[in-house]
Computed example of a mutant assay.
Amino acid sequence: MTTYVLVHGAWHNGQAWHRVTPLLTTAGHRVLAPTLTGHGDQFDPRAGLETYVADVVRLLVEEDLTDVVLVGHSYAGLVISSVANDVPERISHLIYLDAMVPVHGETALDVMPITRVLVDSAAQSGTPDRVPPLPELPAPHGLFGVTDPDDIAWLRSTLVDEPIRAYEQPVRLDNPAAAGIARTHIHCVGFEPDGITRRPVDDPRAQVWELRSGHDCMLTVPADLAALLLKVA
């Protein structure tokens, strides 16, 4: 049995994995999909990257989890990187799912410079402490790659604003023990919006896979994603 911990990205919450979780559990594995602080029913302007890292580390410690396959979607690439830095002994595999991949000391603004537009826009609004979810785009991009009207309605009901601190706090990647953790990158391809660029993977030890899907592949192609997670881990 493998233990998967699935970490959602910005604006989302743990419900985002509801189509993937049963596929992994049916295959005989344990799955935890936490909702990070401020992403449930109540926005928390004090939360940020360090809060989210503490959320996941606390889960691993309290549940006494080891040999964990830690999956981070989108922004959560920063979260899982920092979690691995803090408790590398508990993690067997890092999976970056269409995710930001930082180096030591970087913020989300460094990894994905287009996020600066979101932060600057928030600063000019009446709520400068938060960034609202991205708007729906014309097909085929939809809302984070989701185009089915019912799925869009459900997804929109789960999204919350993201605190500015999440974009401004840097990752800490100064623990050499984390370097030995296996890594896989899954890139969602075929439906990339203009202006979104992905860093090339320059780690020769890492696996790189492609999944034909929009960004929120856990909602649009859950069976394909689950099969890939089972295959690579």
Rank of each mutant, 00 (worst) to 15 (best):
A139K: 04
V201T: 14
E192L: 11
L219A: 07
A223F: 07
D41R: 10
T184P: 04
R130H: 07
D67W: 07
V83I: 15
L229E: 07
D64W: 03
R156G: 03
R58A: 13
D129Q: 11
Y4M: 10
G126R: 08
G190C: 06
L118C: 03
A122L: 10
L143F: 11
L36G: 03
L155P: 01
V146I: 08
H185D: 14
L78K: 02
I91D: 13
H12M: 14
V131F: 07
D129P: 04
E162Q: 15
R116F: 12
T2G: 05
E168A: 12
P88W: 10
L229G: 07
D151S: 09
A178Q: 08
V20T: 10
V71N: 11
Y167C: 09
R183P: 00
N175V: 06
R205P: 02
Y75I: 00
P135G: 06
L23M: 04
D148I: 12
R30W: 02
L97W: 04
S157E: 02
N175S: 11
R46G: 10
D174Q: 05
T37E: 01
V160H: 01
N85F: 07
T26S: 14
L155M: 11
Q169C: 12
G77I: 00
V68R: 01
I80M: 05
H8W: 07
I196G: 01
R199W: 08
R58T: 13
P113C: 13
R130E: 12
V20W: 02
A226D: 13
D202T: 13
G40A: 10
P170S: 13
P128G: 05
G38Q: 00
M218L: 13
R199T: 13
V232C: 14
P193K: 00
E89P: 14
P193T: 14
D203S: 05
S82I: 01
G214F: 03
V87R: 04
D224K: 15
M218H: 13
R90G: 08
T37S: 09
A139W: 11
P34R: 03
D148M: 04
S121F: 10
G126C: 04
R205D: 15
A47S: 06
T220F: 11
T107N: 09
T2C: 10
P128V: 03
Y96I: 10
P176Q: 06
L109A: 08
D194C: 00
P45D: 05
P200G: 08
L59R: 11
H187K: 13
A108Q: 12
L60N: 09
V189A: 13
V7H: 10
P102Q: 02
D203R: 11
Q169P: 10
V31W: 00
D150V: 09
T3R: 06
G40S: 02
T147L: 03
A123Q: 03
D224W: 08
D151Y: 01
G9D: 08
P102N: 06
H29R: 01
V5S: 06
I91A: 06
Y96W: 05
A166I: 07
H39Y: 05
W209Q: 14
T25P: 02
T184N: 11
A108P: 00
D148G: 11
A33W: 02
M112S: 12
W17T: 02
H104M: 04
L59F: 12
W17G: 06
S82D: 15
P204A: 09
S121Y: 03
F191I: 14
V160I: 15
T147C: 09
G180M: 08
D202F: 09
S74W: 05
V83T: 09
P176V: 13
